[in-house]
C-alpha cells in the first residue's frame, strides 16, 4: 500500500496542494491567503460561458447516456445475446481520438456525408461543428464513444439480478415492464453510481475532440472549461487557472459526494 500511497502523494496530492496554494496567491513572499483570484475567475465572462457550456453538456449527455445505454443493455441481455454485437458496441471506445476527429470531419463538415445525405449540394451545406448545432454534434460524439462501457456495465448489473427474484415477480403477475422498473432498476444502483462517475470523468475528456476539430477557440456553444484552462495556461495565467481548477474540483466533489450520500442512505 505504501508505494501506491507515495505515488498518489507525489503525483496527485502534492501537485494539487501546489495549485491550491497558487489559487490563494500563497508563496514564499506572501503568507496571507486572499480570494482575489476566485473573485476574478467567477466574474470572468469566459469562465461563466465555459461553466454554462460544460454544465449543459454534462447535464444532457450523462442522463442520455445512462438511459440509452440501459435500454440497449436490457435489449441485448434479454433478446439479442450476441458477442459480436457486444464487441461492436465497445469498438468506439478503442478508437483513437485522432481517428475519431477524422471521422467527424468526414461526416459533419460542410462537404461531409451528413450534408450529402440530407440533400445539400456540395459546398452549400452546414458546417455542423461550427454552427448552432455544434453542441448536438458533441453530445452525439460523446454518446457514440462512451455508451459502450456503460452498456457493458449495465449488462453486468442486469445479469447480477437474482433470477429467483425475477421469477417470483413473474409469478406474482408482474409484466416485463414492471419487472424492469420495480425489480431490475432498484438492484442497479451501484452500477448507476459507477456509470455516472465514469461518465462525469469522460465528459471532461471531450475537450480533446473539440480541440482537434475546432482549435483553441471553437464555436461559442462548445467552448468548455478545458478550453479556458488550456488558454490560460498558454497565457501563463496560472493563478486564475488554479482558482478555476479548484472551483471545478469543488463542484465535482460536491456532486460525487451528493450521489454517494443519496445512494448510501438508500
Amino acid at each position: 500500500m505504501l508505494p501506491g500511497f507515495l505515488g498518489i502523494t507525489v503525483f496527485v496530492l502534492l501537485p494539487y496542494l501546489d495549485i491550491l496554494l497558487r489559487s490563494f496567491n500563497l508563496n514564499e513572499y506572501n503568507r496571507t491567503p486572499d480570494f482575489e483570484n476566485y473573485k476574478i475567475v467567477i466574474a470572468n465572462e469566459a469562465f461563466r460561458l465555459a461553466v454554462k457550456n460544460t454544465f449543459y453538456f454534462t447535464g444532457i449527455s450523462i442522463p442520455l447516456m445512462v438511459v440509452l445505454s440501459l435500454i440497449i443493455a436490457y435489449g441485448i441481455s434479454s433478446y439479442l445475446r450476441n458477442s459480436w454485437l457486444m464487441a461492436g458496441i465497445v469498438l468506439p471506445i478503442m478508437m483513437p481520438v485522432s481517428t475519431l476527429v477524422l471521422l467527424w470531419r468526414t461526416v459533419f463538415s460542410e462537404y461531409g456525408f451528413l450534408n450529402r445525405i440530407s440533400g445539400f449540394a456540395e459546398g452549400k451545406g452546414i458546417d455542423w461543428i461550427n454552427s448552432k448545432y455544434a453542441m448536438a454534434v458533441l453530445i452525439f460524439s460523446f454518446l457514440w464513444r462512451n455508451m459502450g462501457y456503460a452498456v457493458i456495465l449495465w449488462i453486468a448489473g442486469i445479469k447480477s439480478v437474482s433470477v429467483e427474484i425475477l421469477q417470483a415477480g413473474k409469478v406474482d403477475g408482474a409484466n416485463g415492464f414492471q419487472r424492469f422498473f420495480y425489480i431490475i432498476i432498484p438492484n442497479l444502483k451501484s452500477y448507476f453510481l459507477c456509470i455516472v462517475m465514469l461518465g462525469l470523468v469522460n465528459s471532461l475528456k471531450i475537450y480533446r475532440e473539440i480541440y482537434l476539430i475546432a482549435g483553441e477557440y471553437p464555436d461559442e456553444d462548445i467552448y468548455m472549461l478545458q478550453h479556458l484552462f488550456n488558454n490560460w495556461f498558454r497565457d501563463l495565467k496560472v493563478t486564475y487557472l488554479s482558482a478555476g481548477a479548484v472551483i471545478e474540483l469543488a463542484f465535482l466533489l460536491t456532486a460525487i459526494s451528493m450521489f454517494y450520500i443519496i445512494f448510501k442512505k438508500e
Binding site: 470572468n44 458546417d127 464555436d219 495565467k237
Partner: peptide, 23 residues
C-alpha cells in the same frame, strides 16, 4: 474562397476574438 458567407465568416471570427478577449 466561398467556404463561408460574409456574415458567417465575420460572425465566426468575432466570436473567436470575443472569447479571447473575455479570457
Amino acid at each position: 474562397l466561398g467556404d463561408k458567407s460574409l456574415e458567417d465568416a465575420v460572425g465566426n471570427v468575432t466570436n473567436q476574438m470575443v472569447l479571447q478577449f473575455k479570457e
